[in-house]
Simulated scan of single mutants.
Amino acid sequence: MSISAESLLSLEDYGEYRRAHQAEIQEYRRRRSVLLGEHMSLQFESEQTLRYQLQEVLLAERLVEPEDIQRELSLYARLLPSGSNWRASLLIEFTDPQQREVELPALQGAEQRFFVEVQGMERVYALANEDLPPAAPGAAPDKPSAVHFLRFEFSPEQRDALRIGTPANIGCEHPAYPVDEPIPASTLSSLVGDFQDTAI
């Protein structure tokens, strides 16, 4: 899989494509999303989801210069599965701003406690926010974030098990938000397609 500047639609062409395929786009994104409790969701990324997001950014910001497009491509490249893993955007959402102010700090570090468990095998723990620079010694803690980027790296045995339809759960071990849910079969079927070589 690859996304290049040459493969992107012009702003005008994407606007037309978006109007014609909105329902299809939303259904694909829904199939690759997992809700975890009331306040967390995971959007598993792929070439298609990233292409949609990239085109949306270019359209919203009216970016047409080659250097602007390449900059955005470089950012999105970091979220593309590389053949042995799943990559996901974690969204922590509170509709009530006051509740968010109180509860989001309590979820600090939750992104480090996510796992996928293929039935009968060891849990695969997420590597979170790998592109962020490490905090300087003695620096004040970062303000809690509502968006994180996760990578789940699977062994060949786990990938083979998922390919033949072995069920899997996804969850979080953070004490403020313990959750453990089965991954829907339709989502697993889509995610198994990420196990292949990919480049951007």
Rank of each mutant, 00 (worst) to 15 (best):
L79F: 14
G15T: 05
I183C: 07
Y14H: 11
R163L: 15
L36T: 00
P97S: 01
E16C: 00
P66L: 05
E153S: 11
Q119K: 12
L104C: 09
Q119H: 12
Q196A: 14
E117N: 11
Y17I: 06
G138Y: 06
E173M: 10
S89K: 11
A23P: 02
Y14S: 09
S82P: 00
P141V: 03
R87F: 01
D68R: 09
L188D: 09
D160T: 14
P134C: 11
T49L: 05
F195N: 10
V179W: 01
P184G: 08
P97V: 02
L54S: 11
L79P: 01
R113H: 12
R62T: 06
A161G: 06
A23W: 04
R18H: 13
S7K: 10
P137H: 08
R123Y: 02
R19H: 02
R159N: 02
V147K: 10
L63R: 15
I183H: 03
V118H: 05
R51H: 07
E181Q: 13
E122L: 07
L127E: 13
D68E: 15
D13I: 00
R78E: 12
S46R: 05
A88G: 03
A135F: 03
Q98L: 13
G37T: 02
N129C: 01
V34F: 04
E38R: 10
F114V: 00
F149S: 03
E130T: 02
